[in-house]
Measured scan of single mutants.
Amino acid sequence: CHSECLGNCSQPDDPTKCVACRNFYLDGRCVETCPPPYYHFQDWRCVNFSFCQDLHHKCKNSRRQGCHQYVIHNNKCIPECPSGYTMNSSNLLCTPCLGPCPKVCHLLEGEKTIDSVTSAQELRGCTVINGSLIINIRGGNNLAAELEANLGLIEEISGYLKIRRSYALVSLSFFRKLRLIRGETLEIGNYSFYALDNQNLRQLWDWSKHNLTITQGKLFFHYNPKLCLSEIHKMEEVSGTKGRQERNDIALKTNGDQASCENELLKFSYIRTSFDKILLRWEPYWPPDFRDLLGFMLFYKEAPYQNVTEFDGQDACGSNSWTVVDIDPPLRSNDPKSQNHPGWLMRGLKPWTQYAIFVKTLVTFSDERRTYGAKSDIIYVQTDATNPSVPLDPISVSNSSSQIILKWKPPSDPNGNITHYLVFWERQAEDSELFELDYCLKGLKLPSRTWSPPFESEDSQKHNQSEYEDSAGECCSCPKTDSQILKELEESSFRKTFEDYLHNVVFVPRKT
């Protein structure tokens, strides 16, 4: 048989008469490798580009789960590009990614509803959504962080984005990388972005840091009482949809009607710091009717980097990364020049730590249904340095008659930039024990000054392991946590139920 035959053949030295091919099969003959313009397919066939392209389009058009959109890589027609490569849609070739590779997620039936953290986790790592997304989240724990972890990498949506009755959302900033909504599939009414009845939605994105392009379709905003109209108009300008909307697409009466839409800028007039305090004062603000001013709200939190936005980490279910302080308005003076500047002394802060701070007014709604208010920009203030805590785990070892090696770990709280350490030492008198000992005694162990690591005695271990207080009263049991108490109650309830079950099964009433 021919060298490319495997198993047997019907005619000697003829690659077209093989029972099976050793390498690849091409047009009725066995070959060692697939010549151009053919590609290896499933490690035994040679196919042309049209064959591989037909497989790709067949799966793409069917949208069946589990099928493969075949691509070409290293002269092979394979189910998908290997790690580190992405497909070129024009020629199906796998090309190296520039940075992290995109991950295209194809949605069944063309859309997916995100109504819980669990459903959001199914899209973790996706960068391109081939379909439409509907966000409908009523509640949950730590929602802002969970949504950002699972949806934060999405850069492109081919269909539309719909935010509907998501009472738990305060902001859409968890879509931190969303840059493009194509609108290839539109919501009824030709809408590519749809926001309806979101009672706590206050911000779409921080438009000073976020760009969003909507290729096709219109915007729809109705019944978002805490979303200011200025935020919607800003989205029109940034996304390129200005002029597409009709009169009733953006409701003037049901958007922002319960919001404090600040239209003035508060400026800080005085800032002073110490290692654990920050004193702030800002310019006074009074609405047209000074009785509408209820006070100020001061927001602050630790910020290692200057990239904080107002609604980071917030949701309507209680999660809030900001510390909020309510401040009463100052006494009002008739003389504008003698107006008191409101302020606040922030206490209990960490030394040498940068804080993000902003302040906003708290006002009631005027009778004319106009909203007044003022808010400052987010500023960054760093507390002063102070003395560091003591170095940890000092170790001293003498390696000769004239040297001592000293080692330690950095302090747990540096409280500033540590530039150097101060080492103090003092000579001590020799131990009298060394002169009084009889060095001729056998088995004498000389006193040693070398360091030995501390260890816990058996008594201390027994005390720590004991669940009861000892007789001397030195140790006591740790208080039980809520989960331990709940577990004990469940076990007790189970024992009672099981005992009742045994009584009912074992003891049967005697027939009379």
Rank of each mutant, 00 (worst) to 15 (best):
S166N: 08
T386L: 12
A303P: 02
F290P: 14
A144G: 12
T386W: 05
W286G: 11
D335N: 06
H233M: 01
E148T: 11
K234H: 13
W322Y: 11
R281L: 07
K234M: 01
G313A: 09
I378L: 13
Y223W: 09
G373S: 03
E302G: 15
F268I: 03
G139E: 13
S274K: 12
A251F: 08
R247A: 11
R247C: 07
I188Q: 04
P329I: 08
S401P: 04
K234G: 13
K218A: 12
A195P: 00
N340D: 15
L280R: 00
V325G: 02
C261D: 03
M297Q: 11
P351I: 05
N198A: 03
R247W: 12
S400V: 07
K301V: 05
T113E: 11
W322L: 02
K112Q: 04
F220W: 05
I114N: 02
L345S: 13
S119H: 13
G256I: 03
I181F: 01
L280Y: 00
Q403R: 11
M346G: 04
A374G: 13
G217Q: 02
F221Y: 11
G159I: 00
H222A: 05
F193Y: 03
E184W: 12
R176L: 04
H341Y: 08
E302N: 09
A316R: 15
N387T: 09
F221A: 14
Q382L: 06
F193V: 12
E231D: 15
I114H: 01
Y305P: 10
L108E: 08
L151R: 00
K253Y: 10
R179M: 12
V390P: 15
A195D: 00
T215W: 01
I114T: 01
C228P: 04
G125F: 04
C228Y: 04
W282K: 00
S376R: 00
Y194K: 12
Q354A: 09
P284C: 03
V128N: 01
A259G: 09
F365R: 14
E237A: 05
T254I: 15
L169P: 07
G183S: 03
T361M: 09
R202Q: 03
C317S: 05
Y355Q: 00
F275Y: 05
F311G: 07
F290Q: 03
